[in-house]
Amino acid sequence: PAPFITPVPAGTVVAESDVASPKGSIHFHYRVVATGDGTYTTDVTDFTSSLPVPVGVSFYQVAPSVGDGITFGGDGGSEIGGPTATPASASWSFGAVTQPSYLSTLVVHSTSTSPDVPVEISAGKVLAVAPVAWSVPPRGTNIAPVDSGAVAFATGALEATTASGSPKRYTVAPDDLIDAVARRFGISVSALLYMNQGLQVIDDAQHLFAGTTLVLDPDSV
């Protein structure tokens, strides 16, 4: 059967919290909500800001500190708006992230384009940082990898396992073949490709590139 991972049901709130900047200049409440098609939206309510610049929100895997400058826009983000004492709302698509729980931190940052604002609130400056407590429910799947141990043409290392001990990540060794790796973990080649979209092979024998990290945990996809 074709491999599948069922999406989180529409309307499921997978993260939610209040956020405030250290000096109290910015306040808002946010929720990340499943759409039912494998994606999410971010909803911001009760947003107020006394700073004279527009601000945005993004999610990051590695947390910066307040006052840092960011050059990478993060994931699941958008501009919220400029200064307002009247509570405002905003909503946007989280983007093409089907499993967002690796993004541990919400970051509020300046999106100003003006050269005439103080450096501490200039473009890209981090204004607030908040940890994200994700509650993404387990998704149904017919992919259940089990490591049978190294075999010919699948001799790479299992780099990580899930909490239940199932294979999570595998590093390709020289001479590994895609079908041998799939057999080692008891899954089909199509399931391996489903979890590692864009995976490339070298030749007609379908050797994998040595050093490539393969995802084996369907709930990480």
Rank of each mutant, 00 (worst) to 15 (best):
F59I: 08
G211T: 07
A150H: 03
F4L: 07
S188W: 07
Q197W: 04
V119H: 09
V62E: 15
F59T: 07
S58E: 13
D203F: 07
A157D: 15
P9A: 14
F94V: 12
G11F: 05
Q61A: 14
L158Y: 01
H207Y: 06
R183A: 12
L214E: 02
S78W: 11
A133C: 12
V66S: 11
G95Y: 03
E120Q: 13
E159S: 05
G198Q: 03
V146H: 15
P145E: 11
F209T: 12
Y102D: 14
A150K: 11
L199M: 02
Q197D: 09
R183L: 10
G156E: 01
R139I: 09
I178Y: 02
T84C: 00
T212G: 07
F209C: 04
Q197M: 04
Q206D: 06
A15R: 06
P131T: 14
S112K: 03
I80C: 04
V146N: 07
T105N: 12
V189N: 04
Y194W: 11
T141M: 06
F72Q: 13
K168M: 05
K23T: 15
P218A: 06
P100S: 12
D46C: 08
T162S: 08
T98R: 11
S164F: 02
V53N: 03
A20M: 10
R139W: 07
A205M: 11
D179I: 11
V19H: 10
V19K: 06
S166V: 05
A173T: 02
V172W: 00
S164C: 04
S25V: 04
A210N: 05
R184Q: 02
V13R: 10
L214K: 00
P54M: 05
G156N: 00
H207N: 10
S122H: 06
D204T: 14
P22S: 10
L51H: 02
G82W: 00
G74Q: 12
G74I: 14
I70V: 15
P167H: 01
I178R: 03
F47G: 08
P138G: 08
V119M: 06
L199D: 03
V44I: 14
F185P: 00
S135R: 15
A130S: 15
A205N: 15
V136D: 15
P174M: 06
F94D: 10
V146K: 10
Q200F: 00
A191M: 09
V221Y: 10
P3N: 11
I178Q: 05
G73K: 10
S50C: 01
T113R: 05
A152S: 12
P131N: 15
P87N: 05
T41M: 10
V53K: 04
P83Q: 01
T71W: 15
W134M: 13
A90P: 03
G73F: 13
I187C: 01
P118N: 10
G81P: 02
V189Q: 13
S58G: 15
M195N: 04
P9V: 09
S91K: 10
F209K: 13
R169Y: 08
Y60K: 15
R31F: 04
L208R: 01
